[in-house]
């Protein structure tokens, strides 16, 4: 209980913000290599990653609650007074499977290209201090447009989901048709909204590359969006499996 001397190793201490203060930063110097102005980037990246992990926890809770609603609504009968008995109503939905499998493939591929974009920008930002020295050139490296491809695939997935909804409507399944179809629209809709958030983040990252922003800022956006994007792909596989196998 004595609190005069830090007892044991102080493991949780963090610093890393700010340069030119009385205490030198504990972390944030080294391997990523940035100048005085940018000594905060490692701390910012760490914070942003932590933030996105926390945000993912919140999204998980949304889908956990939707899933529990799905299970409860599926299993709970209601009293039917003409027959004086409990009846279940759940209903069938014929999912446009081929289309959804294609969408899944698009999203999974986009996850791969997203990872490509993340690694590419990590490499670039590591080299940035070198290339920024006047007169130094590492040769004009032809960069693969990972980011643009990911955005296209992401929008493609959203368009595919939209097609799937049209197909559902064509087959006669509307939002209020039966509880099963309500949940199909609900889950796919909520997932699409979250993915659209990821697309917007990528578009923003793309825009910052046009503006005169340091590469590290863009790197942070792309890095955390990548983690979020992988989570979205995983989440979609879960949602798809739930709707297809647990109906």
């Amino acid at each position: 209980m004595a609190t005069f001397i830090p007892s044991g190793p102080v493991t949780h201490e963090q610093l890393g913000h700010g340069g030119g203060v009385t205490e030198p930063p504990v972390r944030g110097g080294g391997d990523e290599g940035q100048g005085d102005e940018g000594s905060d980037y490692v701390g910012r990246l760490r914070r942003a990653r932590l933030g996105v992990a926390v945000a993912i926890a919140a999204v998980v809770m949304i889908f956990v609650s939707l899933t529990s609603a799905y299970i409860v609504r599926q299993g709970l009968p209601t009293f039917d007074s003409p027959s004086s008995s409990y009846v279940r109503d759940w209903g069938e939905v014929s999912l446009p499977l081929a289309l959804l499998i294609m969408n899944t493939a698009v999203l999974l591929i986009s996850s791969v290209t997203m990872e490509g974009a993340r690694r590419s920008i990590t490499r670039q930002s590591a080299l940035a201090p070198v290339t920024s020295i006047p007169g130094v050139s590492l040769g004009e490296e032809r960069r693969f447009p990972w980011l643009g491809l990911t955005v296209v695939l992401g929008i493609g997935f959203l368009a595919g989901q939209f097609l799937a909804w049209s197909e559902l409507r064509r087959r006669g399944f509307f939002i209020p048709t039966n509880p099963n179809s309500s949940f199909v629209y609900l889950f796919t809709g909520v997932h699409a909204v979250h993915l659209a958030g990821g697309v917007l983040a990528l578009l923003w990252a793309g825009m910052t590359s046009l503006l005169d922003k340091p590469i590290e800022s863009r790197r942070i956006v792309i890095d955390v969006t990548a983690w979020y994007w992988h989570f979205m792909a995983l989440l979609w596989v879960y949602v798809f499996a739930l709707l297809e196998f647990a109906r």
Partner: peptide, 15 residues
């Protein structure tokens, strides 16, 4: 914001 701040921005020695 609160969670990230508390976990990541504590001053040196603030265990």
């Amino acid at each position: 914001n609160f969670i990230t701040t508390t976990l990541d921005l504590r001053a040196k020695g603030m265990t």
